[in-house]
């Protein structure tokens, strides 16, 4: 009887350990494949040149247009998302702090909003774009991605704000500050690590998402100079070049993927580093 127990114990410990280590293996496998394939095709030209004539038949050029386009869209969308998301998160934690029920209901809806697939945001952005009479452009892409990442910013920031002790609110209010001063001078400062994490998370999601900008941002070989011009993006550059029958063009998709992966890795690791560093110095 005891023997059987021991075997069961060992078996399941091994199985669950195996599942855990296999996750590390899967991640390593993906990253290695992307980098091995990508670095073979990566050259300086890829990063500093826009596509020249005949690029899509294996001619000269790079994906600078897509890199810049992606950065524009991610920065623009993150900026709008901050303008909408941060006040909303502060409102939940400052003005609604006495109404637990409303707070929870709002969080519940925001969580659900986070789950909406990006293709739906894309279809909605496209509808909105036609409704407003816009063309596929940088601005339309930025707005669509902003919709997508605002719930992420709010919920991530809110998660940190909600851990700030109530005593700090009361102390600040007792000293005669208004709620706004309390929100920005106390809450925002205390939750600064959450702010950085939220922004980086949203930025990473924004730069990597393709389904939402497929309809709205368009695609071009030029670097956009105005908000109403179409913009190329890295995910779409990868996607389009992968479907090419010409091997050299597919190689470039691998290179572009390596660039995008490096950007994402930097963002992920910085976000984690920041949230660690600041959570130590904060009052807890």
């Amino acid at each position: 009887m005891n023997k059987q127990k021991e075997i069961e114990e060992l078996f399941f410990k091994f199985l669950s350990g195996f599942a855990t280590y296999s996750l590390i293996a899967i991640l390593g496998f993906i990253i290695i494949i992307i980098f091995v394939k990508g670095f073979g095709a990566l050259s300086l030209d890829m990063i500093i040149k826009t596509p020249k004539g005949g690029y899509y038949y294996g001619g000269e050029g790079g994906v600078l247009n897509a890199i810049v386009g992606s950065l524009y869209i991610a920065f623009g969308a993150t900026f709008i998302a901050i303008l909408i998301g941060i006040p909303a998160a502060l409102y939940i934690n400052v003005h609604l702090v006495r109404y637990k029920r409303i707070q929870n209901t709002i969080r519940y809806f925001l969580d659900a909003l986070w789950g909406i697939p990006s293709i739906v945001y894309g279809a909605f952005g496209f509808t909105l774009m036609l409704f407003l009479g816009m063309n596929a452009s940088l601005l339309a892409g930025i707005i669509t991605v902003a919709f997508l990442i605002t719930p992420i910013i709010i919920r991530t920031f809110d998660e940190v704000l909600s851990t700030i002790p109530k005593g700090l609110h009361e102390a600040s209010l007792a000293l005669g500050s208004t709620r706004t001063e309390m929100a920005f001078k106390v809450m925002f400062k205390q939750g600064f690590s959450g702010f950085i994490t939220a922004v980086l998370l949203a930025f990473g999601r924004g730069i990597g998402d393709a389904a939402s900008i497929l309809f709205t941002a368009g695609y071009t070989d030029l670097i956009p100079t105005h908000l109403d011009e179409p913009a190329a993006t890295l995910p779409l550059a990868i996607f389009f070049q992968l479907s090419s029958p010409i091997p050299e063009v597919r190689e470039r998709a691998y290179a572009a993927a390596a660039i995008l992966t490096i950007i994402i890795l930097i963002i992920s690791l910085t976000a984690r580093g920041f949230s660690k560093k600041y959570s130590k110095s904060n009052l807890k």
Partner: peptide, 21 residues
């Protein structure tokens, strides 16, 4: 400690990269 960044990165990799893989 090791798994935290692993999960973060897996969650952060864009879907087009997964598709390419």
């Amino acid at each position: 400690q090791l798994m935290h960044p692993v999960i973060d990165i897996l969650a952060g990799i864009p879907s087009v990269i997964y598709g390419m893989w």
